[in-house]
């Protein structure tokens, strides 16, 4: 499994050059108060992991991997772990940059920094939770279309629900999440595990 994680990290490292320029620009913008860098870094990390799916798919790695020891077991597990590793790493970097920006502006708010960290990790992991089962079931190409369809459907449902749910209720839910952000990680971990089980099920059932 370590080998499979190494493979993804090496692929990301080889692709990193393309993102370095974007990263430098956004660091510059963050220091000038033009935008919040925290979300962007995590977003880039997900983009990098998704690009590994593209290359895997193009070279049929998920088939070749089965011919390696414990390959079948490790393909899905390693992808989830690589994403987690990367999201935590980039979120830490974004927290560091946020802290430096706050320090320069002499407005350091530690709770705010922690909230930024949890919000980043959580939002990206939610994307992982919902996207990866689709990818392992359908392959990255088809999954993209289906993810779009599902997001559209969700937006539609939320749009319809908004007619029946008051703004106060939604604000209440949001406030609850902000005030009790520490209960979010356990919920996310459970969702992540369920997502992993689904992805594993789809991958093992797949006929190549």
């Amino acid at each position: 499994m370590i080998g499979f994680i190494k493979k993804d990290l090496l692929m990301i490292k080889n692709n990193l050059k393309a993102f370095t320029f974007v990263f430098i620009i956004y660091v510059f913008m963050a220091f000038n108060g033009m935008m919040d860098i925290s979300f962007l870094l995590s977003f880039i990390s997900v983009m990098l992991v998704l690009s590994t799916f593209n290359y895997d798919n193009y070279n049929k790695w998920e088939v070749y991997a089965i011919t390696l020891p414990d390959g079948k077991k490790n393909v899905v597990k390693s992808k989830y772990l690589t994403t987690l590793l990367l999201v935590v790493m980039t979120s830490l970097i974004s927290v560091l940059i946020t802290f430096l920006v706050m320090l320069i502006n002499k407005q350091v708010n530690y709770e705010g920094i922690l909230q930024v960290f949890v919000a980043n990790v959580t939002s990206i992991i939610i994307i992982e939770v919902f996207m990866y089962p689709f990818i392992f079931k359908l392959g990255i190409e088809k999954a993209r279309i289906w993810i779009f369809v599902v997001l559209l459907a969700l937006a539609l449902i939320l749009g319809i629900l908004s007619n029946f749910i008051s703004l106060e209720f939604l604000t209440g839910v949001l406030n609850f999440i902000v005030n009790y952000y520490f209960i979010v990680p356990p919920i996310i971990i459970i969702m992540l595990y369920l997502s992993y089980l689904m992805s594993k099920y789809f991958y093992l059932k797949k006929e190549f």
């Binding site: 080998g3 090496l10 049929k60 070749y64």
Partner: peptide, 27 residues
Amino acid sequence: IGVVLDDMFFPEVLTPKDINKIMSSVY
């Protein structure tokens, strides 16, 4: 077992040096 399959291998952004690093953890 050693395997060579038609058109199935490591992703093409990797180098032989990378393959060595990966496989040393696989086998």
